[in-house]
Write a protein that binds this DNA or RNA. Structure first.
Lengths: 335, 335
DNA sequence: TTTAATTACGTAAACGTTTTCGCGTGGCCA
DNA sequence: TGGCCACGCGAAAACGTTTACGTAATTAAA
């Protein structure tokens, strides 16, 4: 029991070669069923587990994928990881996690460190701080990579996204139909296609209803919580919008706080609507109308794509998978 | 550039042995500074990155730790992971994630699969479904392991926990001081020390104030959301408690929903208080009084302990680190 | 001057697999 | 009987490191 149990040991006990043992363990056609069974039973008996390092070294496969995301402590990403992990488990893969904290240098450093054969593939949702297209153009040539939600476009890589433009359009129309005519926009992810699409959906919906799109009604996201709160308060005081359309979850708390501090009733004085995966949206005061992305499914789909690539399976006709978000109407936008 | 760049290649280009290159890269005292510099500059120039599999195989170190937890899509755990990842990054370690979904078989399967040298150590918060002490008694002999929050006791392993008993006691006293005399308990983690300590704190606080501890005022957690909701509704209807003390975050939504459906005003008819790491607790309707665990710090501390062990540093006098939770009083327990 | 110690580097084995190639056996068909 | 093929297995190299040990040259000690 104290002896380390490896292939050599199994071979000795069974009086066969280590090559045969290895092939038997991998269920090779070269080995007779009889021998396989002998190997399998002894392996189970001795509680043999293959040494992953040796296996990786020789076969250049790690059965491991990396997930590179801004932060795990975010409802969307933690749900995505849950989905990824579930699929990875089915395929027998291991999952490494790397948080960039929206820092592009960290992002590049991590992904570079993964290129030395530590993982077979990468799932990533990129940092919003910068749009470093050249880097990823080169990266996708070196390692299988799937983008989810926060993607780079025009690259030779699979992307899993949501219908940001359409759902933002739909949500804006919802606000307009509730009588809003001066809808402010809380702008996040402005460097990324997702952020741009959301804003475009908002802007186009306004235009389609003969409403003006004004720079003055836009607040851009800052890393600093206090700044966001102050900006929203200023917006509410100076321009008196009748609705806040928040493109990211991080604006919810400052938006609610701002209204509270300015004694603005939601939804009578100002309506609020936000992209969000908060499970407590129905319990907020008042309950929050959300655009909820299928975060769990996004993770699952992205992982499935990656494993298809890793197993050289033909990907479906196109490289983009677009999932549908849901507009869930609640009290914060009640008419 | 197409050539794979490994130690052999560096050695050839510099006309020195691969042993020297390896030692230089590892900053060995055996190598002169002059040679080291030659190696380092060429390594940078050729963008050399060591092959982790080969390194692991030979040195039996992986620079990788595993985190085994019930689920990442939970505020407490995602914050813990954030803390773990931050420390791991500082030490240059990689982080593998495994979700057990409260399934003890998955938990055992995962940890067993980690024993073949895939990781140098494990950080875990165990499943609540069962208390499998024998398994962990053996496990801690085989691999460095640190428990956090959900721990096994009386084992030769480091534990990072919070002051569950004391804070539950304090919270219960808070409810009593608000005039509550019939405080119901929503019981989670009942198989684990944390769950038992929380309940004990609640029960002892009641006794200390000459209040009765009644089985009838206790609802135990079920996997099924609907069941929890129904149980709480029944509890409210039949026994009419004047407060709900929830020992886990998962009870919050059903508790609020139950009160809403039964038209019971919070906090006038019934007060609610819960263990929780929800960032939106202040925005709930009404805002929720919480016992908030320092999840991020727990992750950091647990990781620090593990790395101390891995580097054979002396651990501080004792094996248990106990961090303080915070009782944050809000409207749901307003007097 | 001799001897021991130190410095700087090289040789080669080892880590535990996977995989290519080759070999012997037996069966089949002509 | 001879030739061919399929089958089942083994020998050995390879993956890219780390490391115990050896060695030559230089330095310090006696």
């Amino acid at each position: 029991m104290a002896e380390t149990v490896n292939i050599k040991r199994l071979a000795q006990e069974l009086n066969i070669s280590i090559a045969t043992v290895s092939k038997a363990l991998n269920d090779s056609y070269e080995i007779s069923l009889k021998t396989k069974n002998r190997v399998w039973t002894l392996a189970k008996e001795l509680n043999y587990t293959p040494n992953p390092a040796a296996s990786n070294l020789r076969s250049h496969k790690t059965k491991t994928v990396a997930v590179v995301i801004p932060c795990v402590a975010n409802n969307f990403f933690s749900l995505s990881i849950k989905g990824i992990e579930e699929i990875a488990r089915q395929y027998g893969y291991h999952v490494l996690i790397y948080q960039t904290h929206e820092n592009i240098e960290a992002e590049v450093a991590f992904t570079n460190s993964l290129l030395s054969g530590r993982v077979d593939g990468i799932l990533t949702s990129v940092s919003s701080s910068e749009y470093n297209s050249e880097y990823y153009t080169n990266l996708v040539k070196k390692i299988p990579l799937v983008f989810f939600d926060r993607v780079y476009e025009n690259l030779d890589a699979v992307k899993v996204t949501t219908d940001d433009y359409e759902i933002a359009f739909e949500a804006t129309v919802h606000l307009i139909e509730c009588g809003c005519t001066k809808i402010a926009y809380l702008y996040g992810l402005e460097n990324l296609p997702a952020g741009k699409a959301r804003f475009a959906g908002y802007a186009d919906a306004l235009k389609a209803h003969q409403l003006e799109v004004s720079e003055q009604l836009v607040v851009k996201y800052s890393d600093d919580e206090e700044t966001n709160l102050q900006q929203i308060k200023t917006l509410l005081q100076v321009h008196q919008p009748d609705a806040l359309f928040s493109s990211i979850e991080e604006f919810i708390i400052p938006a609610y706080c701002a209204c509270k501090e300015l004694c603005l009733q939601i939804p009578s004085a100002v309506k609020i609507l936000s992209f969000s995966n908060l499970s407590t949206a129905p319990l907020l005061n008042p309950s929050l109308t959300t655009i909820t992305q299928p975060a769990f499914e996004i993770g699952r789909e992205a992982a499935k794509c990656l494993f298809k690539i890793l197993h050289n399976k033909q990907l479906d006709d196109e490289q983009n998978i677009v999932l549908k978000s849901m507009l869930i109407k609640r009290d914060s936008t009640a008419c």
